[in-house]
């Protein structure tokens, strides 16, 4: 479903501090699979995920989404594609403080302009499925780390994405919560969502739901791939 062809991302190109973060990656990611990107710090995991998630454009190379080339799409189309296709979970959760849990979850859907009642009931049902129904009106800063992450997950799911992208999702969780997170991801995978995770955490690599681990080093794939199920 996602295909990368010779994708490069160079920061500060042509300047003394030029840095090649992703150096020619070609990769095919199938729909409905859970893929983990692994590699030392600075190996380009985050950069690769933001390239796939249309948050930034590659310096060269092409990315295809369901056979459609997206690298050359004009910005408004790209944004629209991004918010309908991808859901993001960040390492720091990046929830908005002093705003209710419910509003945080609904936030990514605001620009799409659907009716309030539909959006609200969808957000509430996600919160319920994630065991947060009682916290809908609570402020974000009152939440525990695990709750905050589940809010971030609900937010990532609100637009019904086909692809869920998580960058270091377990960095702030203890091992029990990390396992819970991976179990949730397994559920979503079963429901047909494609899942991409960048992580150093062995708990993540070793989870049973993981279909594939992609190793990165200095912006390149390390071949052969360690595990393909």
């Amino acid at each position: 479903m996602i295909e990368l062809s010779q994708v490069r991302k160079v920061f500060h190109a042509g300047r003394p501090n030029e840095h090649v973060a992703v150096a020619g990656v070609s990769l095919t990611l199938e729909a409905g699979r859970l893929t983990v990107f692994r590699g030392p710090s600075g190996s380009g995991k985050t950069t690769l995920l933001s390239l796939i998630g249309c948050m930034t454009r590659p310096t060269s190379g092409r990315i295809f989404l369901q056979g459609r080339e997206i690298t050359s799409l004009p910005l408004p189309f790209l944004t629209d594609l991004r918010r309908r296709t991808f859901g993001f979970i960040f390492q720091q959760f990046h929830l908005l403080a002093k705003v209710s849990v419910l509003e945080n979850v609904m936030l990514p859907a605001y620009p799409l302009g659907e009716s309030y009642s539909a959006l609200k009931s969808r957000a509430l049902s996600w919160l319920e499925r994630l065991g947060l129904a009682a916290k809908a009106a609570a402020k974000v800063e009152w939440l525990s780390g695990g709750e905050a992450q589940r809010v971030a997950i609900a937010r990532a799911l609100i637009n019904g994405p086909q692809v869920l992208i998580a960058d270091e999702p377990t960095a702030h969780l203890d091992s029990h919560l990390s396992q819970e997170f991976m179990a949730l991801m397994a559920d979503f995978k079963t429901a047909g969502t494609t899942i991409l995770i960048a992580s150093h955490d062995p708990l993540v690599h070793e989870a049973v739901a993981v279909d594939r681990v992609v190793d990165l080093r200095d912006g390149r794939l390390v071949s052969p791939e360690s595990r393909i199920c």
Binding site: F90, H94, L96, P108
Partner: peptide, 10 residues
């Protein structure tokens, strides 16, 4: 603003 942009706001 960064978060909103990351959430897909234009």
């Amino acid at each position: 603003i960064g978060i909103l942009k990351a959430m897909g706001w234009e």
